[in-house]
Write a protein that binds this DNA or RNA. Sequence first.
RNA 1: GCACCCGUAGCUCAGCUGGAUAGAGCGCUGCCCUCCGAAGGCAGAGGUCGCACGUUCGAAUCGUGCCGGGUGCGCCA
Length: 585
Amino acid sequence: MNVYAIFADHVRAAVTALQEEGRVPAGLALARVVVEPPRDASNGDLATNAAMVLAKDAGMKPRDLAVLIAGRLEGLPQVTKVEVAGPGFINISLDPAFWPTVLAEVLRKGTAFGASTLGAGEPMNVEYVSANPTGPMHVGHCRGAVFGDAMASLLAFAGYKVTREYYINDAGAQVDVLARSAFLRYREALGEEIGAIPEGLYPGDYLVPVGEALTKEHGPALAALPEADWLPVVKDAAITAMMAMIREDLAALGISFDVFFSERSLTQGEDRVGATIAQLRTSGEVYEGRLPPPKGAPIEDWEDREQILFRSTDFGDDVDRPLVKSDGSYTYFAGDIAYHKDKFDRGFLRMIDVWGADHGGYVKRMQAAVKAVSGGTASLDIELCQLVRLTRNGEPVRMSKRAGSFVTLREVVDEVGRDAVRFMMLFRKNDAPLDFDLGKVIEQSRENPVFYVQYAHARAQSILRNGRVAFPDLPQGREGFADADLARLDDSGEIGLLMRLAAWPRLVEQAATAREPHRVAFFLYELASDFHAQWNKGKDLPHLRFIMENDLGLTMPRLGLVHGVATVLASGLALLGVEAVQEMK
RNA sequence: GCACCCGUAGCUCAGCUGGAUAGAGCGCUGCCCUCCGAAGGCAGAGGUCGCACGUUCGAAUCGUGCCGGGUGCGCCA
């Protein structure tokens, strides 16, 4: 139950009724009408902008219209007062017994409270990570991985049928480099002295086991072959090993995918990239032409030649984009078009790609491609994640020798834990740079939001455990508290918590619509803050404690509130992929 | 040169898709601290929302132009 959505319907119904009575003109656009919690509690429980939004089209003064609408709302159940205020706000006050009914719903539904039908079961493809299979994941991949995963969870909670997908870039020149690097480790495993890893090859020692495995399987046989013969063998083995490693890294972060899609599969057997280009040529989106040399940094070996181009300028891109390289092979973009066409062919009209900010220049052409390939019926949202600056107590973190030149995701997760990494990656808008301090995220203080939110959940569980000590006959599960006399929750802090819980379904929909899982993290922080504050209140004011010795009648609703807070905390943490702990270690 | 992202308190950042007196943490100041669970609590000061026009009942939010920072700019993935 989304209180605000329900009352928005009431307001629209009120306007419709007035229209039928002829007191308000027909044909008003009701979509802009919203019901929100007023910022200031003195303005009631709910507020709507309806009169101000509709006044112009209705040809009426906002306050006059507001009075008419307000008159209609007064008769609604639960409504105790309706006031017109300011430029035309309609402020609605509810029966004090209303907010506890929301808690009763939380207690009955559990973590299903807040789930939305917004997505209406529509298929939604979320592609993220898609790191090259050339080594372990590093911290740079981490943010996109966590962001994509949390957003997929959020969209699923909001009612979409989500598929999580990883595109394996196993077709380009980089995997050839990987193969040559692995071959060197293979010769090393055979006993050969290889010396320093040459420039241009991957130096990380994660390839050592790949070389050893190759000797076990092939003995020295590969070393005698020309590159053209050993390369495919070594490449397959190396990619398989790298993907296994990446899956382990992802598992360490609590991430798994529904689909791993291989770039190579697009050209193995039938040439699906070529087929896609042919299709676009038929529809007029592909042509032969010349491009002007790019502005900015001059390109030394610029060669003006006729090439096969995708007409992305038709969709708002700056220039048309080449699909075939000078050596005749497809560009990465060409493969990506075929890949997104495959998503479309699998029934996805809605797709989301999560990329690093350094790929920002690629957004328009990819969106153009999805439009072209789907005849304009599919849409692609692209969310960019800015860089992460990794520090330890303010100092930049050193590079890892083992991995070659970067800090691996695994090192970070091993040091501070999955929960801290995930929460901090989500405690910032994705399009803003993020400072991640290894020292601060394990601090146990209010400064550290990970701790603060988890502590709130642990504290709630602790209170419930203590409650069962004081009152051994308390219900076991949260449902047993739904029938308590919840209307006794009348302290301002308690009501504030109830209103916060009531805001959860609305926040889910907003965060899902905006593709912004960070809003969930901030919401949880605020809920935790409210909850800690109420607990602290009980320090000075014993009559406000959650557990009232000798007063089961009051303890029951208060423990119901604690259950409700814990439930929503757990629900939100689950979306973020962070554990709702029973106690702090 | 062009495109995209970002400019909000001293610092790090939120700001509910245009609403009422712009919020939080840290830092600063002042009180309190034998509490169901230590890892503190409460309160206060502090902002021309980069600048300027515009859109309208109403702008931190939308548009345009500047200023400042970041990212990217055939045949890399």
